[in-house]
């Protein structure tokens, strides 16, 4: 039997639609380039080819890496110490983010509901030095009862490929990111709750 080596085997588990979208992204990009550029060196062509090959290659769930951050009491803690037995729900937020203020009370309710079932919520504040002093009083006055970590340099945020706040990630017990939800509108917590229940059933 033909055994497809890593990382090409990643292609096999992804939907055709998603693969095509990634290819389209590159095709548009490269088409525009073709129109705009009169000259292109061989090296650039080769690198563009790499982009095309690499983009759809890894279209599977990213595995969460371990990381260390300070908590609200200035103690350094790691993801491994805090993660849930079954699921970890990671909410990236900031004190200046208006939708975050609306979503956090819903996550506090969900944390209370699912904590005993092995689900751990983690809040990751992306506030920089300008707003860092506000994070603790803001979080405490809001009644957040799950751990809050401070990602001042956005190192964790960028490595999880988070581009906006709020963004919510659900990570399963194999450390695979199984849900990536960007933004928040009232009512979306019902979708997230449904997803948690579905994942707990698995």
């Amino acid at each position: 039997m033909l055994k497809i080596p890593f990382p090409y085997n990643r292609l096999m588990g992804t939907s055709l639609v998603v693969k095509m979208l990634s290819f389209c992204d590159n095709i548009i990009h490269n088409s525009v380039h073709t129109c705009l550029r009169k000259k292109q060196s061989t090296m650039k062509k080769l690198l563009s080819l790499f982009v095309i090959i690499l983009l759809p290659m890894g279209l599977v769930a990213q595995k969460a890496h371990n990381f260390k951050l300070k908590n609200l009491n200035n103690q350094t803690v790691s993801y491994v110490e805090l993660k849930g037995n079954k699921l970890t729900v990671m909410d990236f937020w900031a004190t200046w983010c208006k939708p975050c203020v609306k979503s956090i009370p819903k996550f506090i309710e969900m944390n209370d509901e699912f904590e005993s079932e092995g689900v751990q919520f983690l809040g990751i504040s992306i506030d920089g030095p300008r707003n860092l002093s506000k994070v603790k009083p803001f979080a405490k006055s809001l009644g957040i009862n799950y751990p809050i970590l401070l990602d001042m340099d956005n190192n964790v945020m960028t490595r999880f490929r988070v581009q906006a706040v709020p963004t919510l990630l659900i990570i399963n017990s194999d450390d695979k990111i199984v849900l990536f939800h960007e933004g928040y509108k009232p009512g979306e917590e019902k979708l997230i709750r449904k997803e948690i229940l579905k994942l707990l059933e698995k």
Binding site: F6, P7, M43, F50, V51, G58, Q62, R161, Q163
Partner: peptide
């Protein structure tokens, strides 16, 4: 530009030779 090319090659080669616990991921 050579550095870019070699960097790409290095990532590709490492990924290809490594075991299944390794991962490549990113954003565009």
């Amino acid at each position: 530009m050579k550095v870019s090319f070699l960097f790409c090659l290095a990532i590709f080669w490492i990924a290809d030779c490594s075991d299944i616990h390794a991962q490549i991921y990113g954003s565009n």
